[in-house]
Design a protein around this nucleic acid. Structure first.
Length: 526
RNA sequence: GCGGCAGUGGUCUAGCCUGGUCUAGGACACAGGCUUGCCGAGCCUGUAGCGCGGGUUCGAAUCCCGCCUGCCGCACCA
């Protein structure tokens, strides 16, 4: 079952989508005025709204419904925190690749092995000279090692005057949660599992960011750290998701070179030992529901288990949620990692403070283990945008409630008091919480077309009848059909339509294609 | 980071090879006006560009160098 099925429509070129995104205010290259900077993107006005809506959906799924505690901690992080977490050791490294066989190596380990010297933290030039001097060659084939690359993916800076205190922009939001653990434990009334969320920017100084939004140097991540009792890795609400079907690509199959998917329910995944425990499976299922709620098609989702070599230093088991895109193939949009007690133990050790807790019945003292679902919001944003592009025959088609503009309000003509009335209607809708755009430029057809392009699902038009009987027309993007609805019912009707709780035919009385009658006959007008 | 290709208003593009006639032309888009009685109609007016920096030359969008950005391949993505 290799993925050979065709997309809804081919991406004529990824460029066309990006051109639309740029032109209509979704994405702009950052710092363009000064030539731009690779690995950064600005969200334009519509992009910002869309991104916020995605984040809000995440919050709904992973915070509000789950009774998670959400915090917001600094992005700039003192060095000792990231030393304790292992990031200093694992993010900052010197690498070199063999000129002959192409294999790349961590220099610090190689040098230590061969000479016993510790070059951790030494400048690049010095290490390069050392390699030459000691005649260190490729351990695989004996070939000459090429240039030493600085593999420093954390942005370093100093805090306060004097430049003595070193800090880094955080590579993940998680550490802000771990260091707050004791307060969170108390705030959460000393109960497990304890899910804690954080949404915010993360930074990685990628060596060469490519693929647009897929690899950024600054990105928004949404993370949940779920603390639990290692002797009881269950979730009280597991029953609600136990039947959710999961498409899994297991590490053992990947390591055999087989792209073999297994489709099982969340419950089966645990029972058959495919996923390490119930809590992991619970969040896999929740992740799937979240992604589908953004309008991503089920057949384009899968979970891929990372092989031991791919896993981060803190993880014992990791499942990546992947979305198949036209432009980039399968893209990892979330990672669900079993971090064990790695972080809490490391911070306890480094800080000298105890981070264990006492579980009341039985007074058992434990260091909590952690399951971490971690989402790349920008990548999800791209997937949502691409999906909207593929599904919108003309322009974008978002899942309605996700559309950055929900309703367009137009006067049929720019006279006879129609604009004034239409502005009133737009004002009303804005007050009722709709993302509304008022437009009176050009012909009505042009406005519909503009609205279609950015995916506005419904357009309301004010015409002469509005003035006499207080009704407006609502036009549905997908079919260009129209119904006529009284103004006083408009907010509730639109709200139901946007939530897919009301069929369009039921939103009002259908509008005849052409209001029959004398067109050519009277010929005279003022 | 390495190699190849490329960069002209918001978008697409003509011009570049064979420097001057380019105070850079067109289309679409956008803004204002007229018009317009339901799906990108028309007319008028307007805004706006040679990626950045340096060099060659009497003269550079055009030739040369560096940088930036993008695309493709390699590497990297803990």
């Amino acid at each position: 079952m290799l993925s050979s099925d065709q997309g809804v429509k081919p991406l004529s070129s990824g460029e066309e989508l990006m051109e639309l995104a740029k032109r209509r205010g979704f994405l702009w290259p950052s710092f363009e005025l000064y030539g731009g900077a690779s690995g950064f993107y600005d969200f334009g006005p519509l992009g910002s709204t869309l991104k916020n809506k995605i984040v809000e959906k995440w919050r709904e799924h992973f915070v509000r419904r789950e009774d998670s505690l959400e915090i917001d901690s600094p992005t700039l992080t003192p060095e000792e925190v990231l030393r304790a977490s292992g990031h200093l050791e694992h993010f900052v490294d010197l690498m070199s690749e063999c000129g002959k066989c192409g294999q790349s190596f961590k220099i610090s380990e190689l040098v230590k092995e061969r000479t016993g010297l510790d070059v951790e933290g030494k400048p690049r030039e010095e290490v390069e000279a050392l390699l030459e001097e000691k005649g260190i060659t490729c351990p695989d084939c004996g070939g000459r090692l090429g240039k030493v690359l600085e593999f420093n993916t954390m942005f370093r800076t100093t805090i306060g005057p004097g430049g003595r205190k070193v800090g880094y922009l955080r590579p993940e939001t998680a550490q802000g949660i771990f260091v707050d653990f004791r307060r969170l434990w108390r705030h959460g009334r000393e109960r497990l599992p304890l899910p804690v969320a954080q949404i915010g920017k993360g930074y990685r100084n990628e060596i060469s960011p490519r693929q647009g939004m897929i690899r950024l140097r600054e990105f928004t991540m949404a993370e949940l750290e779920v603390f639990f009792d290692p002797e009881n890795p269950t979730h009280p609400s597991f029953g609600k998701v136990a039947g959710e079907r999961l498409r899994l690509w297991r590490a053992e199959d990947e390591m055999k070179g087989e792209e073999r998917m297994v489709e099982v329910s969340a419950r089966e995944a645990v029972e058959k030992g495919m996923v390490c425990h119930q809590l992991m499976a619970y969040y896999l299922a929740l992740t799937k529901r979240f992604l589908m709620d953004l309008g991503l098609p089920e057949e384009r989702l899968r979970f891929r288990e990372q092989t031991p070599g791919q896993r981060a230093h803190y993880s014992r088991e990791t499942w990546d949620a992947e979305v198949r895109t036209e432009r980039f193939g399968w893209v990892e949009v979330a990672g669900i990692a079993y971090r064990t007690d790695y972080d809490l133990s490391r911070h306890a050790e480094a800080s000298g403070e105890s981070l264990s807790v006492v579980l009341q019945p039985g007074k058992r003292k434990v260091v909590c283990h952690v399951v971490e679902p971690s989402f790349g919001i920008d990548r999800i944003f791209y997937c949502v945008l691409e999906t909207a592009y593929l599904q919108g025959r003309k322009g974008l088609r978002f899942k309605k409630e996700l559309s950055p503009l929900e309703v367009g309000v137009f006067p049929l003509l720019r006279r006879d008091g129609l604009p004034e009335k239409a502005r009133e209607v737009a004002e009303l809708l804005k007050q009722r919480g709709f993302w509304t755009e008022y437009d009176e430029a050009g012909s009505i057809g042009r406005r519909y077309a503009r609205a279609d392009e950015v995916g506005i699902p419904y357009c309301v038009t004010v015409d002469h009848r509005t003035l006499s009987d207080g009704t407006v027309t609502i036009r549905e993007r997908e079919t260009a059909r129209q119904v006529r609805t009284p103004l006083e019912k408009l907010p509730s009707v639109l709200s139901s339509l946007l939530k897919d709780e009301l069929r369009f035919e039921e939103a009002g009385t259908p509008l005849e294609e052409k209001e029959e009658g004398e067109e050519e006959e009277e010929g005279e007008e003022g």
